[in-house]
Design a protein around this nucleic acid. Sequence first.
DNA 1: AGTGTATCCTGCAGGC
DNA 2: TGCCTGCAGGATACAC
Length: 278
Amino acid sequence: MPELPEAETIVRGLRTAVLGEHIHRVEVMHNDILRQPKTEFVRGVRGRSIDAIGRRGKNVLIRLEGDRVIAVNLGMTGRLLPFSALPRGERRPSHPAVRFRFESGALLVFDDTRRFGTVEALTDDEWQTRSARMGPEPLDAGYRARDLFRALQRSRAPARSWLLDQKNIAGLGNIYANEALYLAGVHPQREARRVRRPEAMGLHRAIRRVLRDAIQAGGTTIRDYRNAEGGRGEYVRRLCVYGRNGEPCLKCRSDICRIVFANRSAFYCPTCQPVPTP
DNA sequence: AGTGTATCCTGCAGGC
DNA sequence: TGCCTGCAGGATACAC
C-alpha cells in the first residue's frame, strides 16, 4: 500500500528520528517478515549504527556502518515507528514484527498487520544487485519521456499492469498508477504498446506530477498508512479516480467506473479515458 | 518470454 | 448480535 510517496514521507520522518542511533538489540516477533534466517539477520544489524536513510522505489533503506543495509518493503500495511522510549497505551504498535532497540533507549518498530512486508539485512553489494533488477526512479532528472515511450512499445500488457511492474518503473502502486493514467487520458486496459508518443509524453508528466504532489501532501491514507510520526497522508483529498467509483469525474461529470483485472481494482473515467478500440 | 491468476495474512464494512 | 462475503496501498510462484 505504501507506494513511493508514502515511503519517501517515512524516510524523511526517520531521518530526524533515528539517524546516528546505535543498534543495541534486535527482537523478531514474526519470522515470516524476514527473507533470511533470523540469525543471519540479527548478525547483519546488531552492534551497528545508522549512517543514512534512503529509498528506492517503495523500499525504505536504512544504511548501517560497515557497508550494510536494512531493506524494508512495507507491503500493504507495514509501518516504521520510532519511539523515544518503550511505548505504552494507545500509541503502542498493534502488530509489532521487528523491534530495533538503540543504546540511547530509543527504539524503532516495524509494525505490520497483514505481514506482507519484508525486512532484511544485506551487504551493499547484495542490495546493488537487487536494485539493478528494478526499473528507473520516476523522479530522477535522468528519467525521460522518450525512455517511457520506448519501454511501453515493447509490451502487450495493459497499461495499468505495466505501471505496477517494478521492473518497468520503481515505486508506482495501484493508487498512483490509476491517478497517472487518468491525468494522461489513458484507459487502464490499453495495451502498453498502443500508447502513442504524445500520450506517453503526457503519462510521463502525469506520473511525476502525481508523485511529487503526493509527497508534498505526505502521501495518501486510505486506512492503514501512517508516517513515522503516526500521522495521515493528505493526498486522499486530491484523488481524482482511486476509490471514487460512482462519483462524478472532476473534468466532465461522467460517473467514475471501477473494473477488476489482474486481481486488482482499476478506476477510470469512461469519457476522459475511452475504452481501448481493438 | 511475458502475462494473468492465486496466494500469503488480518481486519473491516456491509448484507442478511 | 453473529455469520458470511468481499475488499484492501504488494510481491511472487506457478500455469499457460
